[in-house]
Amino acid sequence: MTDLRDLMKVINIKRIVTASLLMMVLMSLPVQAEMTTVNLELPEYFNFDDNYYTVFGGPDVSATLIGDNEFSRGDEVTLNINLMNKGVITGFESDDEADDSSDLEQKIQQTEMGYESQRTTAIGIVAILVSEGPDVRVKSGPQEAGTLVSGEQTEDPVMFNIEVSKNAPAGEYPLSLQLYYGYQENVQIDGDNETDLGITNMEVGLWYAVGQQMQNISVIVEDEADFEVVNVTGELEAGSEGLLRVVYKNTGEEAVKDATVRISAADPFSTTDDQSFLGSIAPGETAEAVFKLKVDETAVSKNYAINSEIKYEDTDGHSQISDTVKIQTETLPAGSSGSGMGKYIGIVVVLLILGAVFVGVKKYMGKKEGDK
């Protein structure tokens, strides 16, 4: 705590506590929901001859998220947060019980009370936004928000960039906004004499402490549909045309209706039928799409990925388009599907039938001639 004690040293009235001083200690400090202070023991070098007042209260910095807090999976957005200091002096007590104070002491008391009223000012505010899980990642580091007198708010919002994971489940995600600032903890005033011009040789010592607060800022990942391919069937043969059957599953939280899937056919595939109607799909349900594809005769036999997108209507009646969903399929060498053998067998069967008919006719004609 040595560095922290150095931060609390008595300073001349012309010096101020800045955010850079706070940055020396804020990373190691615990944070509370209400304003707390660090090391309130009176420093040994802060030796009052007369401490006239003990004042209670201090800064109270509150945060408000500006704009929408609902986002989709995969979004990268900037959160704009407004800070306002609502600090108040909640009370004070006099440490001087003497009724026969001199003019100098009375003047010093009045001056001290004037300085004590500055206790509610939050000096050099530093804000840190922390996410407690991997689904929402805070990409911005500590942000400086300046000094706020009681009743003031930031002219410009404090900004933090966040990224929502593409795999984040729908729901509410609390983010911890940690606030650190300096504030005036106590005042020491001394002087030689009181004149019409004021106190001569007046010295003012200000003892600053570090205040800390924490507030939750929630973001919501919206319910939405999501799709994946769960089954692919079909025999796509080089140089031939065939049917590709693709089963899609709604893996999201929101039902869809009037869903239509479109594929992007690229070499070695071509098609004049690149769309298939899926209809309504509830979460967890599946629907099958059928495409007619022609495979180039020079196609190499291997696995291919065909891109597809699903256009649908969400529960609010808005038209949406899914992320690209890949269809993994394989092309076969020409003739390997057995379709050529099938044709050959068919021809043989026809010939056998024709032969049987011919033999039957011949026997019939021979019988008639014998009867004659």
Rank of each mutant, 00 (worst) to 15 (best):
E152I: 00
Q215S: 01
V31W: 00
E155C: 04
Q215C: 02
F277V: 12
T298S: 13
V38D: 01
M84C: 09
E297H: 03
V136E: 06
D314V: 12
A356I: 14
G252S: 14
S117G: 01
M214V: 04
F92E: 08
A334S: 15
S264K: 11
E44L: 15
L206N: 07
I220D: 13
A168K: 03
P283A: 11
A122Y: 10
V247P: 08
S270Y: 14
K249F: 06
E253Y: 05
V55L: 01
E44H: 08
T36H: 12
E235T: 03
V300T: 15
N12L: 14
T331Y: 07
K14F: 11
G335P: 10
R262P: 09
R245A: 11
M35I: 01
Y180R: 00
I217F: 04
E70K: 15
T271I: 05
F92D: 00
E172Q: 10
A356S: 13
K14T: 10
A168I: 02
E253V: 14
N39W: 06
S270Q: 14
L26G: 04
V136Y: 00
V88R: 00
A266C: 12
N186M: 12
Q143H: 08
Q213Y: 03
D95H: 06
Y45D: 05
E44S: 15
V10L: 11
A356D: 04
R73P: 05
E93V: 06
M159N: 00
L148C: 02
V38C: 01
E313H: 03
S101E: 15
P59H: 09
S322E: 09
G182M: 14
I189W: 08
P283D: 13
R5A: 11
V359E: 06
L79A: 10
A259N: 02
P30N: 06
E228T: 00
L293G: 07
Q212T: 09
Q178R: 02
P157L: 07
V300N: 13
E93A: 07
E41I: 07
G284V: 14
E228P: 00
L177D: 01
I123C: 03
D156K: 14
D99M: 01
V350D: 13
F48D: 13
S28V: 08
G87A: 05
K363E: 15
A289G: 15
G284C: 06
D50C: 00
K292F: 06
K86Q: 09
